[in-house]
Every structure is written in C-alpha cells, then in structure tokens.
Design a protein around this nucleic acid. Sequence first.
DNA 1: ACGCTGACTTTGACATTGGCAAGCCAGGGT
DNA 2: ACCCTGGCTTGCCAATGTCAAAGTCAGCGT
Lengths: 169, 169
Amino acid sequence: MEAARLEGFLADRDAWRATHCSIGRAMGVVGTRSAMLILREAYYGTTRFDDFAERVGITEAVASARLKELTAEGLFERSPYKEPGQRTRYEYLLTEKGRDLLPAVLALMQWGDKYLHGGRGGPIGMRDDLTGEPVRVEVRSASGREVPLGELRLTPNVSEEAARRSLRR
Amino acid sequence: MEAARLEGFLADRDAWRATHCSIGRAMGVVGTRSAMLILREAYYGTTRFDDFAERVGITEAVASARLKELTAEGLFERSPYKEPGQRTRYEYLLTEKGRDLLPAVLALMQWGDKYLHGGRGGPIGMRDDLTGEPVRVEVRSASGREVPLGELRLTPNVSEEAARRSLRR
DNA sequence: ACGCTGACTTTGACATTGGCAAGCCAGGGT
DNA sequence: ACCCTGGCTTGCCAATGTCAAAGTCAGCGT
C-alpha cells in the first residue's frame, strides 16, 4: 500500500479534488496514440508531413489533424524551407515546449520496453552519445537521489485559500 | 533541428519503421485520460472503487471499465479486505508494473505544470520526503549526467537481422 | 499551358471514450 | 424478511480518433 505522502490539507483526501490537474490537461494535449508517436518521430529527426504519416504509420488525415493541433498548442512550429528548384514548403520543427515532453515520452518507452515485450526488452536502446552509457528516465531530488513513490511528498503549491479554490471538489 | 542520433542501420530513416514501438504499445494500455488519472489517484493512495470514481471525477461506468482493463494488464491487483461488521470487499492495489509508470505520469505532470497553467505552475509540488528537496523527472545517463535530446544516441538492441524483422516497414 | 509532386482536405464508415441514468446484487444490520 | 450500501453493470447517446480512398491546390519544370 505504498503511496506518496500528502502534506497539509492535501492529507484529507475527501476535502479536495484535483480539478486543475496537470496530468489531465497534458492528456488533453498529447493524450492520443498519434500525438505521442508523432513526437517520437520528431525526436528521431523527422520534420516533414509525408514522412510523419509514412513513418508513424497513420493516415494523412490523422497526421494533418494532429500536426495542426500540436502546432496550435505550440509543440511544433511551421517553418518555411526551400530546396533548390522546389517551391517553398513547410516543415514542422519541435519547439522547447515540444522538446520538454521528452522525459514523458521516454518514460513511456522505458516502461513499454520492460513490460510489453515478453521480458525481451524493446527494439531500440538509449545511450548517452558522449559517454556511451545507458540512459534512463528517473525521478530524482535536487541532490541527485532517486526518489521512490513511498518517499515522495506532495505539497500544495499556493496558499490554502487559493489552493482550495483551484482544487475545488 | 535538434534530434537524437540514430545509430547503425537506424540512421537510414527510410529503411525501417517502428512497428513494435514501446510508446505505441504503452499508449494502448494507458493511453486514455481516465487511465492516467486513475494511476495518479493510486499514487495519492486511493484503493477503493468509489473513491476512484469520485476523486478522479469520472462516472462509475468508466471507472469500472478502466480498473478492469488495468487489472487485466497487471497494473493493479484486486485484493479482498474486510472491515469489521462489513462484508468482504475488494480494493485495487498497485503492482510493481503499475508503480513503474510513476516516471511517465510525473513527467506529464511536470510538463503540464510548466506549460499549461499560464506560467503560474501547477497546484501541487513534489519534494523528497526525507530531505525536503524538490523532485524532478529527468533523462540521465548511468553516471548521473542529464542527457538532452541532441546528445541521445539510439541503437538497435538486437542483431540487424532480428531488428529488421521487428522494425519491418 | 500543362502536368507532376508534396502537402494537405474531404468524405464516409466504424470503434472507443465518456457522460448520464437506471438497474442489479451480495451480504450485513435490524 | 426486508432494507441499505458499496460496488459494480447496462443502455443510450454524443464526441473523438482512426482508416481508406478520393479530391484539392500551389507552384516549379518543361
């Protein structure tokens, strides 16, 4: 029955509800298979519409809809480019906001590697390109300690007053 | 145009497709808003059916369907318990598989905190309960270096032969 | 002027998700 | 014997996600 420790008025679990939960909001933005896979492709270096559709294995309709949404949300920006002898086209470049989702995407991959391949591990491994060491996504404190669920403390970030408002039941 | 470095035959981006991608599989298991929010609640310590429905803010029908799926996938196990004078009931306890999704869920929360609250940050903060230090989800190499997207190297995990089979276009 | 190509858009069909409301069921309490 | 309560299940409906296939459009090369 290991769980995080809830501090302050969060401890009374019946007194509040996570109505402005970042997890829920994040899932509203990237909560589809296609959005996550498009991000994966972008991390692999893909920038062009047709490549996204083809490499992710989704229809152009879905690629179009998702890229439009992700661009509107600011995870990609549409940037004109011109190859000699070609007309101007647009490519989809990751913004910082898009790049900052890397830990979330890699954490999913890491979990899938461990549990969804019959113990054989995933098809692609991650290493630090400078040192060659394996890379992992971890929950760590500022001083570098890895923090397990049971040693995680959750605290209200604002005054109880304001928090009650934004955590209203 | 920063991206990961693709090693070996992965470098020829037109020669393979991530058909057995762990990210896609993981999204098949926990790729719904309700699944992620139920996990969040479990990390907060919730174990009982009604509490999940009420605290997550979903209907009992959705809670029932999702808990059944997540239990079938092995993220929760159904365990009988008995309060005195009550009949035997079941609670949903996180398994290691469920607990191992913590980095993914927290990474989403961290991202949402940064970008989806108008710069004000999220309503709940994370600290190391032992030291009080802030906690973050990070992509790190074995020796503790934080690895940005541009310094991440992706390598095929198996022989080119076998990999081609599992990464078939 | 015309065709080709990359980049979409549209249409139509189907599955999944999620909300609301009502119903069911087992086993204690009375 | 009957009711109550926690824990689901069922039915219905709207919204969203996905696919397949066909259509559109801009502009460069010829």
